[in-house]
Amino acid sequence: MTSLILSRLTKTFGRETALDDVSLSVAPGERVALLGHNGAGKSTLMKIVLGLIPADAGTVEVLGEAPGSTRARTQVAYLPENAAFHPSLTGEEQMGLYLRLRGESPREARPLLDRVGLGAAATRRIGTYSKGMRQRVGLAQALIGRPRLLILDEPTSGLDPVSRREFYAILDDLAADGAGILLSSHALTEVEARTDRIVILSKGVVVADDTLAGLRRNAALPTRLQIAARPGAADEVAAALQAGRRNGVTVDLVCEADEKLDRLGRIAALGPLVEDVEIIPPSLEDIYDHYSRRESR
């Protein structure tokens, strides 16, 4: 059974269209990243999937159930953007409550907090936690039970790079166990290699839905070749390659993806004139920009 199917989903707030004819799916064990600027409709989409707000048109199927139904809610975990908790409760007490709400033993609180690296702060009040620590409590509560679908709204915001890696390692375990994961982010650099598929939302419209390799291929952005010439040979190399730009000893060359091998062959043919070649593929930000701008043109 598919973890999540959205088909032709539309949602408007007054005159503003938050989601326009959005279709996407998440398979069990698949990690799908939902990318978009602030206001692109990511949080609205997630709230509809969770059954917190109704859609105007289109259908949503969460593990074969209606969104927000008790059966859907028992199997879906959610991590809100800016996870908030009651400041008077300790991390352990708050987790104890969430465990009870899912019919689990509150004794599981400690192991879960340990798993997200909060074991030492478990008996402190959440009011004293930093944003990153609250985000970890949010992650810990999303791990309760054995969720079949995780909806994570900007889960890595507020986490330092090390915590972010630990976070993705936990997601890998969950996906390996067969849980579908839909996570949102506003930066492609944050999700890159850690997700299986990337959906880009721009002003409520899906403008891309592909693997990172597929996005890269379809964007067909030019690749940069940076050639380090032997001292004094830069001009000669530039002339031989008909390169557009050069500075000092390095020659910069921009080429389309399909010309890359041909160009490399010609660089290799220069032999001792060249000391090194660096291939710089289009950056993740370039690719994201390409797609998110395409629609607004």
């Binding site: 969770l50 917190l52 028992t74 996870a83 709400l101």
Partner: peptide
């Protein structure tokens, strides 16, 4: 106001 309601309402509790 605290922003704790959305998460609570995604739990299987009426």
């Amino acid at each position: 106001e605290r922003g704790t309601l959305p998460l609570l309402l995604t739990y299987p509790v009426s």
